[in-house]
Design a protein around this nucleic acid. Sequence first.
DNA 1: CCCTTTTCACCTAGGTGGTAAGAT
DNA 2: ATCTTACCACCTAGGTGAAAAGGG
Lengths: 233, 233
Amino acid sequence: GWAGEGPGASGKNQRVCHAAARLEMGSLWEEFNRLGTEMIVTKAGRRMFPTFQVKLSGLDPLADYVLLMDFIPLDDKRYRWGWGDGGRGLNLGVLSPSPPCRYAFHSSSWLAAGRAEPAAPGRVHFHPDSPAKGAQWMRQIVSFDKLKLTNNLLDDNGHIILNSMHRYQPRFHVVFVDPRRDSERFAHQNFKSFSFPETQFMAVTAYQNHRITQLKIASNPFAKGFRDGDPEP
Amino acid sequence: GWAGEGPGASGKNQRVCHAAARLEMGSLWEEFNRLGTEMIVTKAGRRMFPTFQVKLSGLDPLADYVLLMDFIPLDDKRYRWGWGDGGRGLNLGVLSPSPPCRYAFHSSSWLAAGRAEPAAPGRVHFHPDSPAKGAQWMRQIVSFDKLKLTNNLLDDNGHIILNSMHRYQPRFHVVFVDPRRDSERFAHQNFKSFSFPETQFMAVTAYQNHRITQLKIASNPFAKGFRDGDPEP
DNA sequence: CCCTTTTCACCTAGGTGGTAAGAT
DNA sequence: ATCTTACCACCTAGGTGAAAAGGG
């Protein structure tokens, strides 16, 4: 679907106010989201799967833009994966699917387990093709496949630093490169942000929900080595 | 070594007239050049080895530059590899090494064999990071490892089109992106070209000089599978 | 005969989750 | 007990020259 734009769509520069972004692989993102998406974080940095990619429109073909992403905590909680009190209260319906039978073997779910860790420094990831003309960005799908997530607070590779067992919402920003002298004064008018709820996820160092693992293996080409039976193209 | 700049260094824009480029892997290029460098061309496109890479200096850190390469015919001849008339006249000393013994088994060499084919359309290869600031270009070695050579006159992948069995001189160009309105009128002032004689080569569809093959195998990591004996790091 | 094309085994380079050991 | 790390086999993706087949 098309993203809801950030607050305050008024007062935006003409170069960004008509910008629109469609999330690619939307059905795959929704399939993960229904199970409660998990993303691995490692010391060396791990890519996201699905990859965050968008199709852009509404840019000025001749203007320069910078594209970037950041990740904001979805709440101030820390989570753990396990068996709750039988299903009352702590289960987060949005996060885990309603199991077909509440007493089935696989009935674990995400439980709030205290307040969030101190937030890591809020890094951003610039799309490596930035800056580029609007025409270039709109020509084809923009893929953030170089973006990596890490749990290393001291990371010096420029990766996105996240806390494991915390929930995050990826955000996507289109920034018009203002050629005017005192462009800093208009910075707040020169960008537009997009947030796709179906891309939210739990950062983990190892997968907790086995259904997530299975869906990753089934849909990520690099995990083909772990597929069992007959394929389905 | 440092490149000789193109003719007419006078009248250049301040943003390019101090630009300098040092060829990287110079000793490897020279080793190939002493044997007579050959570069494979294929229908699908083949990378160069050694890769053309330079270290830049003298750019304006804050100005925008485009970096690109093209290839110019070194002469108007077509060549063939074989046995000459005993060593008189047709042997090109620069192209093949003086064999230790003129009557040794490996005494073939490049011989002129008629006039050149009609020149293919003179394509150029823009470095994919173009345009970028001078500071960015000077930060580290600029590598043209995405450049591919093809002999397909109908190529639509944007590769460099060359005629097999013809000699070429790679050229490297630094172009200042002039922000002025009528910048086209200053185009001839806004670039500086570099030509390294040790990078000239013969385009081939299959290696002719067995010593070139051996040196490629010995020095190209992707050809490690063809190395025989003990390695030498 | 000489040159080109195709296919292939063998590499580099790097993205997967599994697994077992380590850390707290 | 729970989470993290390091290493691994197994993939994708693509760059090598060898060898055989193709073409004029």
